[in-house]
Amino acid sequence: MRIPCPHCGERDVNEFRYGGDATKQRPAHGDKDFQTWNAYVFEFDNPKGPHEEFWQHTLGCRQWFRLKRNTATNQILGGGQ
């Protein structure tokens, strides 16, 4: 699989680190609501199909970015941003 890094362009997947579901909204810093944090940390949509996720170009520019990918086919649907 090739991942489009927004800075460096398309590179092999092993230059990157996966960072999980990017549609989950991180609670605001200082948010004290237990359920909100619990859902953010421990629950996943985990869809079979289009998925927006975080990746980091760890062996390159170290930029974290969002990527749209189809988890049923591994097809890249939308470039990093």
Partner: peptide, 18 residues
Amino acid sequence: GHSSHVARMAGLRLPVES
């Protein structure tokens, strides 16, 4: 492997990624 997929049919979100 597909637990999230089937559990979603009952409205559940699981602590699972495939």
